[in-house]
Deep mutational scan, measured.
Amino acid sequence: LYHVLGLDKNATSDDIKKSYRKLALKYHPDKNPDNPEAADKFKEINNAHAILTDATKRNIYD
């Protein structure tokens, strides 16, 4: 999941948040209406963010 956000395992919560915002804006379906690959990437980014920002889920993942 870290690679989805372009981060390593030592990433801080701020790093995760910044990377998520940058990538979410880039791949958001509203910005890429005719690109199904961007929509899939956006879903991956959201999933990675949801797990890595939840301390319990992140510990389980790590």
Rank of each mutant, 00 (worst) to 15 (best):
L52T: 04
A39P: 07
L5W: 00
N10W: 05
Y2G: 07
L7T: 01
R58L: 04
H3K: 10
T56L: 04
A39M: 10
K17M: 11
D30G: 10
K31E: 11
N59D: 08
E44R: 04
T12S: 08
A50K: 11
N35Y: 01
N59V: 11
H28Q: 15
D15G: 04
H3Q: 11
N32W: 09
D15T: 05
K18F: 14
F42T: 09
H3F: 08
L52W: 04
D8L: 03
D15C: 08
D30Q: 11
D62Q: 02
A11M: 00
E44G: 03
L23D: 10
A24G: 05
K41A: 08
E37L: 09
H49C: 05
L5A: 06
K43V: 06
T12N: 04
V4L: 07
Y61L: 11
F42M: 15
D62K: 01
D14G: 05
H3G: 10
E44A: 10
K31S: 03
A24F: 15
H28P: 13
F42G: 07
K17V: 13
K22Y: 08
I60Q: 15
G6Y: 01
L52I: 02
R58K: 14
Y2H: 03
L7H: 02
N46L: 10
K57D: 12
A11E: 00
I60G: 15
K22I: 09
K57Q: 11
N46S: 15
R58D: 06
K17E: 14
N35K: 09
T53N: 14
I60E: 15
K18L: 10
I45V: 13
V4K: 01
L5P: 08
E44H: 04
H28E: 15
R21V: 09
T12M: 01
V4N: 10
A24T: 13
D34S: 05
I45W: 00
D14P: 06
G6K: 01
K41S: 08
D62R: 04
A24K: 12
N47R: 10
G6L: 02
N32T: 08
K22M: 15
L25W: 06
D40K: 15
L52F: 07
L5M: 06
I16W: 00
L52K: 04
N46E: 14
K41L: 06
Y2D: 09
H49P: 04
L52D: 05
K18W: 08
I45E: 09
S19H: 06
E37G: 12
A24E: 13
L52E: 07
P29R: 04
L25C: 11
N32S: 07
L1F: 15
N10S: 10
D40V: 15
E44Y: 01
N10F: 05
A55H: 07
S13N: 13
D8N: 07
N32C: 05
K9L: 06
Y27I: 01
R58V: 05
P29S: 10
A50E: 02
K57G: 05
A24Y: 15
H49K: 12
E37T: 13
I60F: 13
E37Q: 14
N46F: 12
D14I: 11
H28L: 03
D40Y: 12
E37V: 14
L52A: 07
L25Y: 07
A39N: 13
K26D: 11
D54V: 02
P29K: 08
H28V: 04
N32H: 13
I51W: 01
A38E: 09
N47D: 09
S19D: 03
S13K: 11
D14R: 06
I45S: 03
E44V: 08
N10Q: 08
D8M: 06
R58P: 11
D40A: 14
I16L: 07
D34N: 07
N59E: 14
Y20S: 11
Y27N: 00
A39L: 13
A11L: 00
K41E: 06
K9S: 11
T12P: 00
D30M: 11
A11F: 00
K31P: 05
D34M: 01
I51S: 08
D62C: 00
V4C: 12
P29F: 02
T12L: 00
I51V: 14
H49A: 13
L25H: 04
L23P: 04
P33A: 12
N47S: 08
D40Q: 12
F42V: 09
N10L: 06
A38V: 09
K41P: 00
A24L: 11
A39W: 14
Y27F: 15
A39C: 13
I16A: 06
L7E: 07
I16T: 02
N35A: 09
D30S: 14
D14N: 10
K17T: 12
N10Y: 01
S19G: 07
V4E: 05
H49Y: 08
K17I: 11
Y61D: 15
L7A: 07
K26F: 05
D30Y: 07
L1P: 01
T56H: 08
L25E: 15
Y2M: 04
A55S: 10
L7K: 05
A39V: 13
K31T: 10
L5Q: 14
L23M: 09
A24D: 02
A11S: 02
N35V: 08
D8H: 04
K31C: 01
F42Y: 13
A24M: 13
D54Q: 01
D8I: 00
K43Q: 15
Y61V: 13
T56P: 03
T56R: 08
T53Q: 09
A39T: 04
D15K: 10
G6S: 02
F42D: 11
K18C: 11
L5S: 07
N59I: 12
N46K: 12
K22L: 13
D34T: 08
K57A: 12
H49F: 14
Y20G: 09
I16G: 04
Y27G: 07
D40M: 15
H49I: 01
T53L: 12
L1S: 09
P33N: 05
S13G: 05
S13P: 07
E44P: 02
D62W: 02
S13R: 06
D34F: 00
A48T: 01
D40L: 15
F42H: 04
K31F: 05
N46R: 13
K17C: 06
I45Q: 04
H3E: 11
I51L: 10
T56Q: 04
A39H: 11
L7G: 02
D40N: 07
H3S: 14
H28C: 07
A38R: 07
K26L: 12
Y61W: 03
R21G: 14
